[in-house]
């Protein structure tokens, strides 16, 4: 069953330096441009792509932290696209977010105890000593000590701060968490600790996750499904094995080819590296958005935007989708 589903989701940000221009001009950053996406209950969906592809905007739209320009979002069967902020408040108990930079996403003037008990009190889960008790348990759950409740965020290292960020997201016992590059700001040794923590809490708290990352190695380890984004569109959506072992879209292939590994022998595949400049999301290219960088570009790619084609694997019955003319004829 789908826990969260998006249909034809679009989010455009108006551009223009002044107030009048902003409302009169049609120019807009097409951050998310027609995305269909569904996350099964209990699954982890990885959202990958280069910077500027709209993956963070999409993550925020799913939580209604941003209101989409067009399209619909369903959470647990209920449409939440047009709920008011007041109505959303009670739903937020079930959906939380973990941010990239733990330092800037924790209030420096609140103690860890306050950071963790505020959402608990706000959602009337518990009050007073009981709330504090929950906070202490949470801290232990994320691998910190329960007597850290009286400390302030600056007293912790980056990895520990990210643990607090995760504990805060868990405090209201949500079903769904969007993690926006949760390990990108951390050192490798700490990154592994946090990844293990995320895997553990996912099973312990029975969570559904959207894991936004630009690091394909990390995604391979924590995700069940992967959606590859490019310039506001999802170009490939398949199980993690399919994307990594048999990528269909040339862009997924190119991303995989440019991942370097710490081996003495391996080097980047020289031939397959794509041209580095991502086109502007204000004027995305006509036809297929990837055609300006695609190594397998055909004439049709320059004029027609391919549709998202679904195909079913004859062996596993798993369905996967890709948005490329190469697979349309088949």
């Amino acid at each position: 069953m789908n826990l969260i589903r998006a249909e034809g989701l679009k989010k455009h940000f108006p551009v223009g330096s002044d107030f009048v221009a902003r409302y009169l001009s049609d120019d807009a950053v097409h951050a998310v441009d027609g995305v269909d996406l569904a996350v099964e209950k209990g699954q982890t969906l990885g959202l990958v792509g280069e910077s500027g592809c709209g993956k963070s905007t999409l993550g925020r739209c799913l939580l209604r932290l941003l209101s989409p320009t067009e399209g619909r979002i369903y959470f647990d069967g209920e449409e939440i696209t047009s709920l008011s902020q007041r109505q959303l408040r009670s739903r937020r108990r079930n959906m939380q977010m973990v941010f990239q930079n733990p330092r800037s996403s924790l209030n420096p003037r609140q103690t860890v105890g306050e950071i963790l008990t505020n959402p608990i009190k706000f959602h009337d889960i518990a009050t007073g000593d009981e709330a504090e008790e929950i906070a202490r348990t949470l801290l232990e759950d994320v691998g910190l000590s329960s007597n850290h409740v009286n400390r302030y965020p600056h007293e912790f290292s980056g990895g520990q701060q990210q643990r607090i960020g995760i504990a805060r997201a868990l405090s209201v016992n949500p079903e769904f968490i969007v993690l926006d590059e949760p390990v990108s700001a951390l050192d490798v040794s700490v990154q592994a600790q946090i990844l293990k923590l995320i895997e553990r809490i996912k099973t312990e708290y029975d969570l559904t996750l959207v894991f936004i990352s630009h690091n394909l190695n990390v995604v391979r380890h924590v995700c069940d499904e992967v959606a590859v984004m490019y310039l506001g569109e999802i170009v490939e959506n398949a199980s993690v094995e399919d994307v990594f072992e048999n990528p269909m879209h040339p862009y997924s292939q190119a991303l995989l080819d440019s991942v370097a590994l710490p081996d003495g022998s391996k080097t980047i595949n020289r031939e397959n590296i794509i041209n580095e400049d991502i086109p502007s999301p204000i004027n995305p290219p006509d036809g297929c958005r990837f055609h300006t960088r695609c190594p397998e570009v055909m004439d049709v790619c320059r004029s027609e935007n391919p549709s998202l084609c679904a195909r079913t694997d004859p062996d596993t019955q798993a369905s996967r989708t890709s948005k490329c003319h190469l697979y349309e004829q088949i």
């Binding site: 490798v188 040794s189 990844l195 293990k196 690091n215 190695n217 990390v218 991942v259």
Partner: peptide, 24 residues
């Protein structure tokens, strides 16, 4: 060794991630 072990790798999905305890 620990540093190398803690790098997640897409070509070795079965490999258990090694996390170095504690911090610098």
């Amino acid at each position: 060794r620990a540093l190398l072990e803690s790098v997640p790798r897409h070509d070795m999905p079965e490999k258990e991630l090694f996390a170095i305890d504690g911090s610098i």
